[in-house]
């Protein structure tokens, strides 16, 4: 899973670079507009190490922001799974708030909280929180009647069991959503850094943009792509392992 993602990214990246080089060649553009291969390699030599640490800095915020989002989404999702008035209220509120473009709030966050760690974390978690919440709400509010019926009629159903059944039955979906939300969290962090932060790869991209240095931007995109692919691959692998272990332990109980 991990290597598959990296290979996929490398293929897409290479095709994109080839496409840019083709445009450069056809339109006879200078290295200022689209850098040639030697300049890209030279720039990589100069900035790769710096950008790697910048991406790791961004990733640390991403992971933390995503973790916060997952906790929040599951807490609210579990609370809102019921068809009671509070459940309906949570669902309606979540659907309405998620329709608002969170990025538009970023300048206000930066004015109030400054351009440090907290602002980046807040924006990253807000951007990936709502899509996560909607998926978790959808999963948690949908009964798995075949399984749940047994526990309900035997009087053994508790909320913890209900959550567990629904999570287990939709584990693939949850893994995909969590893995996908990593991209959102990363995008959120980069946008936050791009707008106002003083650290991270988004900030470095902004500096490169000031200098109209596409070679630097291409290197930044490469490092981001590789690292986010690895992170998503790791998340998917963890999801697979949890699923396998859970299946085995459940089988054990049944036997």
């Amino acid at each position: 899973m991990l290597f598959k993602r990296i290979y996929q990214f490398l293929i897409v990246y290479t095709i994109s670079i080839l496409f840019l080089l083709m445009i450069k060649m056809v339109l006879s553009l200078s290295d200022y507009v689209i850098p040639g291969v030697p300049l890209i390699i030279e720039t990589a030599g100069q900035v790769f190490k710096t950008y790697f640490f910048d991406v790791m800095n961004t990733l640390s915020i991403t992971v933390l922001g995503q973790f916060m989002s997952i906790i929040m989404a599951f807490t609210v999702g579990i609370a809102g799974r019921k068809s009671s008035w509070i459940g309906s209220f949570i669902k309606v509120t979540a659907y309405n708030i998620q329709a608002y473009p969170i990025v538009a709030l970023a300048p206000i966050i930066f004015i109030l909280l400054g351009d440090g760690f907290i602002s980046r974390l807040l924006i990253a978690s807000m951007i990936c929180y709502f899509p996560l919440l909607l998926s978790v709400l959808g999963i948690m509010a949908t009964p798995v009647e075949d399984v749940e019926h047994f526990y309900i009629v035997t009087g053994q159903m508790r909320w913890q069991l209900e959550v567990k059944i629904r999570a287990f039955e939709n584990l693939s979906k949850l893994t995909t959503v969590i893995s996908g939300s990593a991209t959102l969290a990363m995008a959120g962090t980069i946008v936050a850094e791009f707008i106002a932060a003083n650290a991270g790869i988004g900030y470095s991209i902004r500096i490169a943009l000031y200098q109209s240095d596409l070679a630097k931007i291409l290197i930044a995109l490469f490092v981001i792509g590789i690292i986010i692919s690895m992170y998503q691959g790791v998340l998917e692998t963890i999801g697979e392992q949890i699923k396998t272990k859970w299946s085995v332990s459940n089988q054990g109980e049944v036997i």
Binding site: L27, L29, S30, D31, Y32, V33, P35, L39, Q211, S212
Partner: peptide
Amino acid sequence: LELGYANFGVASADQVIRALDKGAK
């Protein structure tokens, strides 16, 4: 200018010099 979207433009000296350094005409 290079891509043909503009015939004239305004740029700061550092932009011009950077572009010339990278072969812009």
